[in-house]
Amino acid sequence: MNTIRKREELGRNVVRYVVDAPLVATHRKPGQFVIIRVTDHGERIPLTIADANPEMGTISLIVQSVGKTTREMAMLRPGNAIHDIVGPLGRPTHIQRFGTVLCVGGGIGIAPLYPIAKGMKEARNRVITVLGARAHDLLILEDDMRNVSDELIVTTDDGSYGTKGLVTDAIRSLMSDGTHIDQAVVIGPPLMMKFTSLLTKELGIPTMASLNPIMIDGTGLCGGCRVTVSGEIKFACVDGPEFDAHVVDWDSMIRRLGTYRTAEQVAADRYDHECRVGLDAGESR
C-alpha cells in the first residue's frame, strides 16, 4: 500500500506528500516521474518525483490542484493511501558538470525542477535559479531551491514579491550583466517554456525542457503523450520527458494539452458539487 506519511501545504492549492513507494524510492533519478491513481476507479495522472528517501522507502510528490484528480488527491491525509503508484518512468535528466547551469522554473514546474537543480548542484555546477510566479502566494519551494542554488532570482507577474516581470526579463538582465551560462533547464507552464526557449535560442544557450503532455500508461503504449521534436513524433513518457527545448514544436504541444478542456471542466464541477452536497468540502479548494 502506498500509505501517505506526511502532508504539508506549500502554497495556495499546492500540497507536498511523502508517501511509501519503496521500489520507486530506490530506483528513481532526477527528472523521472510516477503515474498514480488516487482510487481504484480513478484517472491515471503523471506526477514528478520531487524527492526520495531510499532508506525510508518514501518519495515526495508535490501536487497542484487544477482539476478533478488533483483536487481529490489534495483531500488525502496521512494514513490514507494512494491506490496505485507506478514508476519511476521516463528517462532521467542528463546531469553532468556543465559549468554554470541556469534553472528556470514557473508555477508547479518548480516541483520537478527541484530534484534537477539539486542534481546539478551535486555534480558541482554553479546553479543560478530563476523562479517565476503569478503572485507571491503562488510561489513554492523557494527555500528548497535557495539551498541548492548559488544565486536565486524570483519574479512575480504582479510585483507582489521579488522583481516584477517575467522569467524572461530576469534572464535578459542576467545576460546583460555578463553572466555566462553553459546550459539551461526550464520547467513550467508550456507558454513560459516556449518563450524561455525562444529567448535562450536567440542567446545561444543549450536548453532542456521537461514536457508535460497528457499521459495514460507512461510505458509507450498509447501514444497520447506524443510530441513533435525536430519534426519527428516522440513519446514523452519513454523518450522524454526532457527534450532539447529549441527543437520542440511548442504550439502543437500547447494545443494538444487543451484536448479535453470541456470534459475536464465538467468532471471538476461535478466533483466540487458532490463534495459540497455529500462530503465535507474541506480544503479541496
Partner: peptide
C-alpha cells in the same frame, strides 16, 4: 498531431 487524432491503442485504452 491534430486534436482528435488517436492511436487505436489510446482510443481503446481510454
Amino acid at each position: 498531431s491534430l486534436l482528435g487524432v488517436y492511436s487505436a491503442n489510446e482510443y481503446l485504452t481510454r
